[in-house]
Design a protein around this nucleic acid. Structure first.
Lengths: 191, 191
DNA sequence: AGCATCTGAGACAAGATTGTCTCAAACGAT
DNA sequence: ATCGTTTGAGACAATCTTGTCTCAGATGCT
């Protein structure tokens, strides 16, 4: 095979980030293969979307796992929780543009299967943020659900920034973390 | 007319927030009119999208104007700039779900006309954020462009939260402002 | 070179979407 | 109640999209 299934999905996501309603023909062209070949990999558009959704979820879950989110959620140590939070945001930022369309695409809503997994991953993350609030790593006067949404929003922002070339990829994690934790106001104890 | 053109657009946006690729038939049904009537208002889908895009821009611009963004950008008074920033975010949050699709829809990219105006409004806002940084209302170690993207991301987040009923509408502006300015970490001088 | 496999180009039918049109019914103002 | 306007339902052709299929050429392996 000239094009790996993984390369294919990557290219498809990349194009869907720009045009979420791209047709199979447009996707095939963007990937650099013929429509027939695209259909050999994915019988239907629906199947492609499903696969992309699963891929997105795998990356999301991988970010959670490699950050030790589960253990941290059960922990009381601010140090542990803080490190997990830091790693989680780093990993999420890294895959933000590739994971990409999973953030906003309608496919995630229409497939019950995807929606369920999406909800599950989100709930885990919310539970983690709640723990972070409990141990003082995050402020407690915002609902954990809103915190989760904030992360989501920042990831959309960083994906867009990367797409437009407004920020360097290496800079992204730092920007996200700094903005997420401290916001955009000068700290009172600054200079 | 049973349905105002404005009501129509509002309902259409509301539905597009859920399903960005809705067909004219689906939109007509969501609005509560027949497809024929929808086509009487907007000859083509393209024209509808264009109108929705302009509407979004008007709301965006209105938010900028009513916050006194232009004057504040030329000001040196942190008080003035701070108030403008506060008002701007409030206004943007208020229209986030209605203005909605303008945040993410592909139509904003494909129509050169919309894209140009979008860029213009964004540049104005970036200039304002730069001023806010200069007078110490916003921290200066983030690029103004990234600050702008952050706002964009938070608006996407709040739109999603409102859509899902995670946050109350009255709460939204406070949440956005608090998160935007201070982030999610506890302030060092808290408690 | 010979063989098996994969690919691209394109034909094809089925279905969905779009835009236009007609006509009868509903509506509103007088 | 009547007239003029607006609406909804649906027919219709044109177009786009999708999914399947075929076949000739390219590619890779031995």
């Amino acid at each position: 095979m000239a094009v790996t299934r993984d390369q294919l999905m990557k290219a498809a996501i990349h194009h869907l980030n720009e045009n979420p309603s791209a047709s199979m023909a447009q996707l095939a062209e963007a990937v650099g293969i013929s429509r027939a070949t695209l259909h050999r990999h994915f019988t239907s558009r629906d199947e492609l979307m499903l696969a992309l959704g699963h891929r997105a979820h795998e990356q999301w879950e991988q970010a959670q796992v490699s950050s030790g989110l589960a253990e941290a959620t059960a922990s009381d140590d601010p140090e542990v929780v803080g490190r997990a939070l830091h790693t989680l945001l780093d990993r999420l930022t890294e895959v933000a543009d590739e994971y990409g369309f999973g953030l906003t695409d309608y496919a995630m809503v229409v497939h019950p299967e995807l929606k369920r997994r999406s909800d599950e991953l989100e709930e885990r993350e919310i539970a983690f943020y709640a723990t972070a609030q409990r141990v003082g790593v995050l402020r407690a006067d915002l609902s954990a659900r809103w915190v989760s949404c904030t992360v989501y929003g920042l990831l959309v922002a960083v994906r867009e920034s990367l797409r437009r070339g407004d920020v360097a990829r290496r800079e992204a994690p730092r920007l996200v973390l700094a903005t997420f934790l401290n916001g955009t106001a000068p700290r009172r104890d600054d200079a």
